[in-house]
C-alpha cells in the first residue's frame, strides 16, 4: 500500500508573519459535524461528556482545548475537533466527517482584533467576544467561522477551496494594520 502524504489546505501559503502578527495554519485533528436529532440535545451532550469530556456548547460558544475542542457551528450543529468521534454518538445525532473540508488558520499577536475588524462584520473586541465565544459570520466575502481562543488569539475557518483567498485577505489586512501602528 502506498503511504500518501496529506497536503494541508494552506501548504505553501502560511505561516505569515507581519509586524507582531502571526497567521499560521492550525491542525485541529479530525473534524466531525455533529447534528443532534430533534429532542436529543441533552442525550448528545451527556454522551459527548462521557466519551470526549466536553458538553454540547450553547449557541455562540466554543469549549475545550487543542486536544478536544467543540465549536458551535450553526443552527443545530456543532463541530467536534480533535478526536475520532465515538460511533455511539450516531444513536443520538447525525455525524459527518469534515476533516479535509475546512481551512483552519490561527491569527495571533497584538492588534489581531484590528485585523479582523477589517474583515468580519461583527464586534470581536474582548468586551463583546471574549475567549470561549464563536460566531458564524463572514470573513471578507467568505462564509466562515471565527472563534476567540484567548487574548488576541483567533481561530478562523473557511471552506478549504477558499484557502488562497483567506490568506490573501488576511495578508492585506495585516499589512494595513501594521502600517498604521
Amino acid at each position: 500500500m502506498v503511504e500518501l502524504i496529506a497536503k494541508s489546505a494552506c501548504a505553501g501559503l502560511l505561516p505569515l508573519k507581519i509586524g507582531g502578527l502571526l497567521a499560521a495554519e492550525k491542525d485541529l485533528g479530525v473534524l466531525t459535524a455533529i447534528m443532534p436529532f430533534i429532542g436529543q440535545d441533552k442525550a448528545a451532550s451527556d454522551m459527548l461528556k462521557a466519551v470526549h469530556g466536553v458538553t454540547l456548547p450553547e449557541a455562540g460558544r466554543v469549549i475545550g482545548d487543542d486536544d478536544t475542542r467543540i465549536i458551535w457551528f450553526g443552527r443545530g450543529q456543532v463541530l467536534l475537533a480533535g478526536p475520532t468521534p465515538s460511533t455511539d454518538l450516531a444513536q443520538v445525532a447525525a455525524l459527518s466527517d469534515q476533516s479535509d473540508a475546512w481551512c483552519c488558520v490561527e491569527l495571533s499577536g497584538a492588534g489581531a482584533v484590528d485585523v479582523l475588524a477589517r474583515l468580519v462584520p461583527i464586534d470581536l473586541r474582548a468586551s463583546a467576544f471574549p475567549k470561549g465565544h464563536t460566531a458564524r459570520s463572514m470573513i471578507g466575502h467568505m462564509n466562515g467561522s471565527v472563534s476567540c481562543l484567548g487574548s488576541d488569539r483567533f481561530l478562523m475557518m473557511v471552506f478549504r477551496s477558499m484557502a488562497g483567498t483567506l490568506v490573501h485577505e488576511l495578508a492585506e489586512a495585516m499589512e494595513t494594520v501594521v502600517a498604521r501602528t
Partner: peptide, 8 residues
Amino acid sequence: QHEAGCGA
C-alpha cells in the same frame, strides 16, 4: 435565511 451565519 441567515445564510452566512447560523443558517436558520
